[in-house]
Write a protein that binds this DNA or RNA. Structure first.
Lengths: 204, 204, 204, 204
DNA sequence: CATGAATGAGAATTCATTCAT
DNA sequence: AATGAATGAATTCTCATTCAT
């Protein structure tokens, strides 16, 4: 067919990206099969190459799209009154994204956890807006005396993001048993702010 | 039975496993090349099939071996006087293992972080002895009032292990920049026990 | 009939043929890309199939057109007074064609030199007018005693054409270094008439 | 199978090269099919990659082998008493090679005639020994006054080789009709030394 | 046991061609 | 007529696995 208009073309691209995200989430990059992705998207195998020049490029697009989707939510985020509330609101928003775009988010987390320097750097870079939001919250928290000023906020933000990813990993790895998605906001923020130690045991 | 005693056979197997660990750590499972592993171990291509029936089986053996190596150290571990000291001693021991068996540990962590239910469960199961040690420390910490009794110790132990893995991921993903292996024990225990918050009245 | 007159249609066809000639000259038949040809001609991918039913047919048309262009010049050719002058005039005209229609001529020569019986015969047949001109010159040369009557003129003409093609091949193969196009007329005629030998008694 | 000894391995390589030569001679480089070559050599398709890392490399090997075979004959060549006899002896030897190794020689000539600068240079380089033999004959001919000293011997040698190739092209292009292989030595040397002009017509 | 040549299923990618618009 | 999205056959190349020696 031809002359389907930019709408249809964009739509086809979306379908392909969606299928690719699901497939990459299930199999990982190396084990993924480009033909299968095209088929799963309802196209013949060659068609996908009208949209993405190679498997690697397709994967990069999925990753970018995942980052884009994850990040664009945080623009509209309301800040809570305390650090704890702000962080929980942020994580609730993230969990909502994960619920809706599970495939994309799985790819993202899996790749972030694969510690290949190249993709690790890429993902950090693409996450910059998200990290910036976290940073801002933490900085305000430090000003208010709610966050210990021991570590630089940027590093704390990376740790917070890692902790969040870790809980997703445990969620998916346990097939949803523990933690449930709903528990994650409180869990991750509690863990991050309070740790597991009792107050009196704290290192002075 | 054969011209080589069981000692030689065991030795060949060990060399193959070691080479396989290094190779899997560098390339991941899918991109790994069985022939290359055999060659790197100093054998010809076919020989590896005298010891492992398939690539998947070889990988499983590497994983098991990694678990075994990771775990066997903790049997002899001295317990510190406080929860913090005990945990730090444990992590220092783990870091020592990671330093010596980096290839095996990379495979292990990567696989643990890939949230495929099967391997995730397998790894948890194989880590049972390690988790038991952590559990014990935490339980004693609870008795002493050093650990908040909010969460069950088993779950806390899994989280602790996850946190530790997360720091390894960040270490390898940043190509060793941050955190350095030496920093990890204090970092992970600090994070786990104290969190990042500076709540009122906590700090004495 | 249609919105474009036959003139426009012919023009489109010409553009396509020209682009195809250039592309085939650069890449050869097998490595040529029909889509790229259409694009280079300023059309979209599918359009070329409104003019040529297949890649092979397109190539055949380019070949025919090349023959046509190569041959049509010689109709108006002035004959020199001697065999040597006549042949040199002919080759100068041919070199002029090659200069102007380099793409078509490259395709033609490459195909002629690929010794596939079918195309070889086809090209000879299409070159009949050209060969006829050469033949006529040679026959007159024989009458005048300027050409040895040992070989039949038709065969000599084919050899002459081959020699000319050979020099083009060397020209293009050496990236224009040797021989230069300008040198070719004297070179080919000198080679053809005189050879490289300096037999006794010949040189006056 | 394994452990077939270097003999079998060399033999397999030879079979593959032979099949490749035939295939490339029939189809040319681009249209050639590596699977088909392996099959024609009596192997499964993957096997050929145990011997040659890529299609291009296989082709280069065929070309090298063709050059090698063509050249090694001339080492043992007897020189005739005159330039004409020496050249005819050389060409007779070359024709003998062509007869025995037709596939390799076709590839060689086809490629030499495709005026791609890269292969053109390669072939000239590989033909250096052959060209050296021709050069030597021509230089002695010049000393004896049998060759006009107008052009440098190296350039004459290239032309001679081109002329010879041209006749092969006409032989194969005409499906063996004209010239026959047997006629080529006398034809090419006659053409090269004497040209087609009558003596009295010679440019003084 | 060790070897390494042979195998063939499978994957990525290309591109001539079709055809609905 | 022009367009360009879709198609799927075909091709190159990889590599886990087998097995004769």
């Amino acid at each position: 067919m031809a002359r389907v208009g930019p709408k249809a073309k964009t739509d086809a691209r979306r379908r392909l990206l969606q299928a690719a995200a699901g497939h990459f989430a299930r199999h990982g990059y190396e084990a993924a099969n480009v033909n299968a992705i095209a088929l799963e998207a309802g196209f013949a195998k060659g068609t996908i190459y009208n949209y993405f020049p190679s498997k690697r490029e397709l994967f990069a697009e999925v990753l970018s799209e995942a980052c884009r989707r994850a990040v664009e939510r945080y623009a509209t985020l309301e800040h809570g009154t305390s650090t704890r509330e702000s962080l929980e609101a942020l994580v609730r928003a993230d969990v909502a994204v994960v619920r809706e775009e599970e495939a994309f988010m799985k790819v993202l987390v899996r790749e972030a956890m694969s510690f290949r320097s190249e993709t690790y750097a890429l993902i950090l870079e693409r996450h910059a807006p998200f990290l910036a939001v976290i940073c801002e919250i933490l900085e305000r928290g430090m000003e208010r005396g709610e966050i210990r000023p021991k570590d630089p906020p940027a590093r704390l933000a990376v740790t917070f993001l890692g902790l969040l990813s870790l809980l997703y990993v445990q969620h998916w790895g346990s097939a949803g048993v523990w933690p449930a998605l709903d528990e994650i906001p409180e869990l991750v923020v509690g863990m991050f702010l309070d740790g597991a130690g009792a107050e009196k045991g704290r290192r002075s």
